[in-house]
């Protein structure tokens, strides 16, 4: 193999100074960032009590728990768990529907092409702050209001999704084609006519897709709000973990996985049917 010869390094250096003499700030930026990230990480491990002995004993505990989980077995409570799963699915469906119905009119007031900025800004911030509060926190608040049980879960999901839907719907409305609205206006339609016949036909399929997607993701959220007492399968799960019935725990987790996969499949099919394969991908 021939070595590259006659390379005049000095000449190259003179011709491409920016390659050879990168300023220290740009050469050191990446290592400095890595070191900083690692330093925070180590500080975090120390500050959060990650001692090796604790970690190892925890891992062995975890191994023991996993052994105890096998095989998954509902015992005699299968009917109870099926009912709880039904409750969870009901919470997801009702909560999402309620949120979508409430959010649709409000989202009009958060869309730039419908209302002036002075209306849009406060509505947007209002929706943002609703979204800033986690579903679990809303569940706790609703439990204070309507008592323990799945109904509190429905309301919690409805409120927290209301914030998310308001934002997504208004973005869909802002993305709609204005020509059709202008067409309605040109033929003498009122503002309501513009929304009904100009906007809605464009926006509804998008919205339907988003709602279906949320039903899917809310099946997951609905499983966890039970942990704070808002009904559904999460309640059973938290209880069985507390009383260390590990076989039942693994069975419940399995049920959740299967239910989520089934909902994924169904809503995927429905979404394709409503808005076509291409818009989803």
């Amino acid at each position: 193999m021939s070595k590259p010869q006659d390379v005049n390094t000095a000449e190259l250096r003179a011709r491409y100074p920016e390659v050879f003499d990168r300023p220290a700030s740009s050469r050191l930026a990446t290592p400095a960032m890595l070191v900083a990230a690692l330093a925070i990480f180590v500080f975090g491990l120390v500050d959060l009590d990650f001692s090796p002995s604790r970690f190892i004993s925890g891992l062995s505990q975890l191994g023991w728990i996993s052994m105890m989980m096998m095989p998954p077995d509902p015992g005699s409570s299968l009917p109870l768990y099926l009912k709880a799963l039904g409750e969870t699915l009901s919470i997801a469906l009702l909560g999402t529907t309620l949120a979508a119905v409430l959010a649709l009119p409000v989202s009009l007031f958060a869309a730039r092409n419908i209302v002036p900025e002075i209306v849009r800004f406060p509505v947007r911030r209002f929706l943002d702050s609703i979204r800033g509060v986690d579903t679990l926190i809303w569940a706790l608040v609703w439990i204070n209001v309507v008592g323990l049980g799945p109904f509190a879960g429905v309301l919690a999901i409805a409120v927290s999704d209301f914030g998310a839907f308001g934002k997504l719907f208004s973005e869909a409305i802002e993305g709609a084609d204005q020509k059709q609205v202008e067409g309605i206006r040109a033929s003498g339609g009122s503002a309501l006519h513009e929304i009904r016949f100009g906007l809605m036909p464009q926006v509804l399929p998008v919205i339907a897709g988003q709602v279906l997607y949320f039903i899917e993701s809310n099946t997951r959220s609905a499983t966890i709000i039970g942990i704070v007492g808002a009904g559904g399968i999460g309640l059973q799960l938290a209880e069985q973990i507390r009383v260390l019935e590990w076989q039942k725990v693994s069975f419940l987790i399995l049920m959740i996985l299967v239910a989520v996969a089934a909902i994924d499949f169904i809503s995927g099919k429905l979404r394709f049917a409503i808005i076509g394969r291409r818009a989803v991908a």
Partner: peptide, 10 residues
């Protein structure tokens, strides 16, 4: 929805 609202004790 109706089945769900019975299930969720609405």
């Amino acid at each position: 929805l109706i089945v769900a609202s019975i299930g969720a004790e609405v």
